[in-house]
Design a protein around this nucleic acid. Structure first.
Lengths: 227, 227
DNA sequence: TTCTTGTCACCTAGGTGTTAATAT
DNA sequence: ATATTAACACCTAGGTGACAAGAA
């Protein structure tokens, strides 16, 4: 069996409609997909991997800007999904390893990166921006009897956590997602407002103070949960 | 067969008498021990590991300071070696892996750390300061026939590169070693003198400019190679 | 108008030798 | 007198969202 780590955080994001940035160079997920694993054969070898399947066949778009609305937090269906991206798979870099090793600590997929570059040659996961995806986690038992590379598609088990669904985007659409990322991702600490002594920060001339004030003013605005 | 990477750099250090810092928390080696491997069975599993053996049974010490000599670059035998440290071994973190994987790129032992803490519980290599060591590289063939953990000490091969010998120290004894480390280790770039524009640098009050000047004045002084 | 790209300041995380203080 | 320790400035390496400019 498998237990999702940081489930509370995933739930919080999912409630707002999780968004994950995709870039040409590849971007990590946040939250990171991490699990605790139970019930493996300690002595047997396993491969751990992830893939991403479309949640639906739709393309999304943000609502039209008006003079008073900046970024909406709700989505419109923009039509049929774009052609499917190459169905890549990410093997956990420690694969293969013994069950004992996988079980003795949290397994973290922090090397996994998402890209929108169809021609990516770094082995990253390729996704269509403005489409929704469901991460899947697979455990493959490495059968010692047949040494052929036909392990996969035979002895494996798949785990799906619906709270990890997300929309791939090239820029955040929902400001509350942005704020939650800033609040919870250590690497975004530089954008936090309400910390002990929030200075000297955002020294770039103009623009940013305005943005920050605007973002703050939007915080109390409620937005419907995605899905 | 195995080929030592950065051999020219190792030779340069070895000519001066390589020193490696040991700390309580563990310190990486520089240069890093890196090899290219040839002639493995691409499909077979191998474990790669390193250990360190004393070069002799001696303890060294630096020469006595006088009013005109600061740090000498020559060593005196200070007596018999201290009691041997726990004979630890460092497994390359990618072990075990297929021969094909080991051979397709340089194998780097950059996670290996040296410590002088006899009670270390981080799995680092424990060495006696002021003693000389010879790094050894071992390739262990993982025999698929017996699944017992008795692979080691059976199908293995050991490689020794004498140019990687070094003296373990808690602080550098030979200024020319220090200068070569600063010149060749990217992480020590902050201490370089003769780079493009050497300006807002070493802003600590006093002391350092003097040290730098002193170090520079010593550079042309010849010192006998170690061993 | 909407979406994407590239650059940037600002972080995390951790590897350097220096230095002053302490230990042996 | 010699050796070790711990704090520190200064790096490498790379993960953030903001922003401006460009593309569709």
């Amino acid at each position: 069996s498998v237990q999702l780590e940081m489930k509370a955080l995933w739930d919080e994001f999912n409630q707002l409609g999780t968004e994950m940035i995709v870039t040409k160079a590849g971007r990590r997920m946040f939250p990171t997909f991490q699990v605790k694993i139970f019930g493996m054969d300690p002595m047997a070898d396993y491969m751990l991997l992830m893939d991403f399947v479309p949640v639906d066949d739709k393309r999304y778009r943000q609502v039209t800007n008006t003079w008073y609305a900046f970024h909406s937090s709700s989505w419109l269906v923009a039509g049929k999904a774009d052609p499917a991206t190459p169905g890549r798979v990410h093997y956990h870099p420690d694969s293969p390893a013994k069950g004992a090793q996988w079980m003795k600590q949290i397994v973290s997929f922090d090397k996994l990166k998402l890209t929108n570059n169809l021609l990516d040659d770094n082995g990253h996961i390729i996704l269509n921006s403005m489409h929704r995806y469901q991460p899947r986690f697979h455990v493959v038992y490495v059968d010692p009897r047949k040494d052929s590379e036909k392990y996969a598609e035979e002895n494996f088990k798949t785990f799906v956590f619906e709270e990890t669904r997300f929309t791939a985007v090239t820029a955040y659409q929902n400001h509350r997602i942005t704020q939650l990322k800033i609040a919870s991702n250590p690497f975004a600490k530089g954008f936090r407002d309400c910390d002990p002594e929030d200075w000297p920060r955002n020294h770039r001339p103009g623009a940013l103070p305005l943005m920050s004030a605007f973002a703050r003013s939007r915080n109390p605005v409620s937005s419907p949960a995605h899905q």
